[in-house]
Design a protein around this nucleic acid. Sequence first.
DNA 1: TTTTTTGTATACCTAAAGGTATAATAGTTG
DNA 2: CAACTATTATACCTTTAGGTATACAAAAAA
Lengths: 188, 188
Amino acid sequence: MDNKEKILQTALYLYSNNGFDSVGIQDIVDRSGVTKPTLYHYFNSKEGLIEELLDSQYHNLIRRLNISANYSGDLPLTINKTVKTFFNFAKNNREYYRILLYLQYLPVDNRWSEVSREYILKIFKTLDDMFEKMATHHGNLKGKNKNLTVSFMGVINSYINLYLNDPGKLNEDLAFTVSHQFMHGIYA
Amino acid sequence: MDNKEKILQTALYLYSNNGFDSVGIQDIVDRSGVTKPTLYHYFNSKEGLIEELLDSQYHNLIRRLNISANYSGDLPLTINKTVKTFFNFAKNNREYYRILLYLQYLPVDNRWSEVSREYILKIFKTLDDMFEKMATHHGNLKGKNKNLTVSFMGVINSYINLYLNDPGKLNEDLAFTVSHQFMHGIYA
DNA sequence: TTTTTTGTATACCTAAAGGTATAATAGTTG
DNA sequence: CAACTATTATACCTTTAGGTATACAAAAAA
């Protein structure tokens, strides 16, 4: 692993557990076994480092999401696949997903909120499209895409936030339960 | 309004829009028209200020929540009242609730995460008790309280997070929609 | 083989953070 | 009125933050 990769890994670890503001460049270079100029050589600034960090695993998430959210007639299957995609991605990229969660609820004027907004929006857009397509077959969903997207992300992220330290819980069973409850409510 | 109150108001405003780490004591005292020793006289430290800030409106929330979450036989009514309680509280205490949201998704090792954990847990506990009581009348909810609490908070906070800048949207209609969907799923 | 680029370390800079020593003022209590 | 307590301002402290000027070694290009 070269120095650049080492820095990215360390930054991911530290930022994920403490947040961007609580981790200094010095902390990162110390833990990576390099010095500041090395970091600045590769990333130019703290912001540059964070941007590259966010970018690094994001396309992976979007790619998977596009596959599972690609509705073509079977609503329960699509919902379940999408829940599983989120759970699996979060399980396999715990540190990264923790950052994504943290960014999603950052105050609006926060410096880092802007850096990440496009990423969050893209995820929402993908789900919104999914629900819109679903509405063509299920009339009762018509016009509700936004609400559905918000509910869906809310439930998913709430579970992930809770179980991120115990990722074994984010399994197929829970994914099924969550999908089922989302579709049929708490009585069923 | 005395200086202490002025400081609290300013801190609430600034922290709510930027997060704790992005706002310095200097920013707060400048905007309050006082000087540092005044702030330190009343609050001892940044942490002390934040603790008092969190405390200031928290009991209000818990009080209301205890009333609406007090299940006594009518599940849909209780759910709906509780959703409305959250929406109304968030609407009437936007800055405060924004901080609560932000704290809920902070990385675990973050300095401020600890300060706020008990508050978040108390809210979860109240809802958990509500769902447990409900399960005595609705057998199919039995043993699901934790999942129900997580889903419930997830959906509620996701909506609030989205509409906090446009709080007119957090109205009774949306509360009804959210309650209904929570109970009966997206098909209904 | 010379030259240039890439990568890295030492040592430093400036700004801003949280916090305080000291002293003055105002109000309260004896 | 005297003593004391609560409240405030000036000016300062220390630490840490992000970032950089300079110099040097290795590798790639000429």
